[in-house]
């Protein structure tokens, strides 16, 4: 377990409203693949994600270079799998850069 660099309280607050969110295209594609939508993802972030799900926190290499990304692994029933979620906070925006099956459990 790793402590997330982006406080979960702030992640939850930002995730409450779509207006505060940025979602990358591959995340949208993957959500559709699992029959989920962005509201589900925001719900998961608000009510299911805990510090215990965070396993890595590292400077963002590709997107948003001046920020730190947190990587989470969480079981999502609808997906029937442990899912990998990567997010960061940039200014007043929650940026979700990754949502996919956690291959470590594949």
């Amino acid at each position: 377990m790793t402590a997330p660099a982006n406080p979960l309280e702030l992640v939850r607050r930002l995730a409450e409203s779509e207006d505060n969110c940025v979602i990358y295209q591959p995340v949208m594609t993957e959500l559709r693949h699992y029959g989920l939508d962005s509201d589900d993802l925001r719900d998961i972030l608000c009510s299911e994600l805990g510090e215990g799900h965070c396993f890595k926190s590292s400077p963002t290499r590709k997107y948003y270079p001046a920020t730190v990304s947190d990587s989470y692994s969480i079981w999502i029933n609808e997906c029937g799998a442990k899912m990998y979620i990567k997010l960061l906070i940039s200014g007043e925006r929650l940026v979700i850069t990754s949502f996919k099956k956690d291959e470590r459990y594949a």
């Binding site: 779509e18 207006d19 940025v22 990358y24 295209q25 949208m28 559709r32 962005s38 925006r93 940026v95």
Partner: peptide, 17 residues
């Protein structure tokens, strides 16, 4: 060329699809 959906673009995209 990075593509993202910001704020209300998220729902607009999902509803259109």
């Amino acid at each position: 060329g990075a593509v993202s959906y910001v704020g209300e673009q998220i729902s607009r995209h999902e509803l259109a699809v």
